[in-house]
C-alpha cells in the first residue's frame, strides 16, 4: 500500500472510525459514504467501540511479503458489537487459544514495515479482551 493510500485511510486504520447512516441508523465499517443497508448517503463519522467477538478464524503459516516476522499469526472475521464484520489480525494470542465467539477488543499495532528504511504501517488488530484473560 502506497504512502498516500495509507495516509488517506489513517482514521479508520488507527482508531476504527467508520460511519453511521443518518437515514436508517446502521453503523458502517469500513466507511464508504453510501449506506449498504438502505443506499442513502452516509457520511457522518462514527467511532466504533472496538469490542466484538471472533466470528471465524484461520492461522497463516505462509504469509504475503512483509508479514514474515509475525508467522504464525491468526486472521479473524470479527463481529463488532455495533454490527459490521471486520477482517483483521489477532494479536497477543497463540493460534490454539482462539475460539469462535471469543470476546475481543481493538488495539492499534504495527501491521508491517516497508523495509528497514520505509514507513511503518500501523492499524487495528484485535486481542482477547483484557478482562477475560
Amino acid at each position: 500500500m502506497g504512502i498516500a493510500q495509507n495516509w488517506r485511510l489513517r482514521s479508520q486504520r488507527y482508531g476504527l472510525v467508520g460511519e453511521v447512516c443518518d437515514d436508517c441508523g446502521e453503523k458502517i465499517f469500513p466507511p464508504r459514504d453510501v449506506c449498504p443497508y438502505c443506499t442513502q448517503p452516509a457520511q457522518t463519522p462514527f467511532q466504533f467501540s472496538g469490542r466484538g467477538e471472533v466470528f471465524s478464524h484461520t492461522t497463516i503459516y505462509n504469509p504475503p511479503t512483509g508479514y514474515e516476522e509475525f508467522v504464525p499469526y491468526t486472521v479473524a472475521l470479527v463481529k463488532l458489537e455495533e454490527g459490521p464484520l471486520v477482517t483483521a489480525q489477532l494479536t497477543d494470542v497463540d493460534p490454539e487459544e482462539v475460539n469462535i465467539g471469543q470476546p475481543v477488543e481493538m488495539v492499534t499495532r504495527k501491521i508491517r514495515e516497508d523495509g528497514p528504511e520505509g514507513l511503518i504501517m500501523y492499524g487495528y488488530k484485535f486481542r482477547p479482551r483484557l478482562q477475560e484473560v
Partner: peptide, 13 residues
Amino acid sequence: PGPDEDTLTIALE
C-alpha cells in the same frame, strides 16, 4: 514487547 509492538503502540494504549 510482541513483534507488532513498539513505543508508539505502547504510548497509544
